[in-house]
Simulated assay, not measured.
Amino acid sequence: MDQRLSLITLGVEDISRARCFYEDGLGWSPVSATEDVCFYQLPGLALGLFGRAALAEDARRPIDGTFSGVTIAINEPSREGVDATFAEALAAGAEALKAPEPVFWGGYSGYFADPDGHVWEVAHNPGSVIGPDGATTFGG
């Protein structure tokens, strides 16, 4: 598995309120946004905002004290890359939460938990570009 991060997703109670904070308060500009999810490009990775309940459902992990509603993601350039990285994580001792599958936003992703319960997503997003240095650019 490549040693890199692509995306940190924050589960939020209210997407509109969260967007006001990041956009109006901090002056950030989204690269992609719907009423359900929003992405901000950062140097080399992105920050995503996703409804907390929807994120818990997507990760198949309830927000109950063992899951805070924050996920870390590794994006791969293909579905096959997602499958290989997911299998590698499981072989290393990760717990499968959701096997990779096509998802509503047009990509392909799965979730696993590391031995401490931190939730990782492995995804292929056809709207992102992964550079030679592993930096992921969304909306590109």
Rank of each mutant, 00 (worst) to 15 (best):
E95V: 02
T66G: 14
A96Y: 11
R17C: 11
L5G: 03
G44V: 09
P115H: 13
T85N: 11
Y108C: 03
F39D: 11
A84C: 11
A18K: 04
Y40N: 06
A33I: 07
A92W: 00
G25E: 14
I8C: 01
R61V: 12
A54H: 13
P132Y: 10
A92M: 08
A94C: 13
F104M: 05
G25N: 09
P77E: 13
V31P: 08
V129F: 08
I8G: 03
L47S: 14
L55I: 08
R4A: 09
G81K: 05
P43A: 02
F86I: 06
G134T: 09
E95Q: 09
G48D: 02
A54R: 15
R61T: 14
A94D: 03
S128A: 12
G93V: 01
V70P: 07
G69R: 11
V82L: 10
A87Q: 15
A96C: 13
E57S: 14
G11F: 01
L7N: 01
E35T: 11
D83A: 11
I72E: 02
L45G: 10
I8L: 00
L10Q: 05
W120C: 13
A89T: 06
S78Y: 07
I72S: 11
P126L: 06
Y111F: 10
G65K: 06
Y108A: 04
V82R: 08
R60N: 15
G110S: 00
A84V: 10
S68E: 14
W105F: 15
F39V: 08
D64N: 04
D24V: 02
S109C: 12
F86Q: 05
A56Y: 09
F50G: 01
V12P: 03
D116A: 09
Y22T: 02
F104V: 05
A73D: 15
E95K: 02
L42D: 01
F86T: 08
A18R: 06
Y111I: 01
T71M: 12
L7A: 00
P62T: 06
I130E: 11
D133M: 06
G69N: 12
E57Q: 15
D83C: 07
L26I: 07
G93L: 01
Y108D: 04
F112C: 00
P102Y: 04
I8M: 00
R19P: 00
S109P: 00
A123M: 05
A113V: 04
W120L: 13
G93C: 01
V129L: 11
G110Q: 00
N75W: 01
W28Y: 13
P100H: 08
D36S: 05
D114F: 02
R61I: 08
Y108M: 04
I130S: 11
E13H: 13
A87T: 14
G131A: 10
L10T: 01
V70W: 10
S6A: 15
G81P: 06
H124N: 12
K98G: 04
L47Y: 12
A53R: 15
I63N: 10
H118K: 09
A73C: 15
Y111A: 00
P77I: 07
I72Y: 12
W28R: 09
P77S: 15
V129W: 06
P43F: 04
E101S: 13
A46R: 10
A96V: 06
T85R: 15
L26Y: 04
A92C: 10
S128P: 04
P126D: 13
C20V: 00
T85W: 09
A87N: 13
W105Q: 12
G65I: 03
L5P: 01
A113L: 05
I63S: 11
V31S: 09
R79Y: 00
F86P: 03
G107M: 02
L5N: 03
R60D: 15
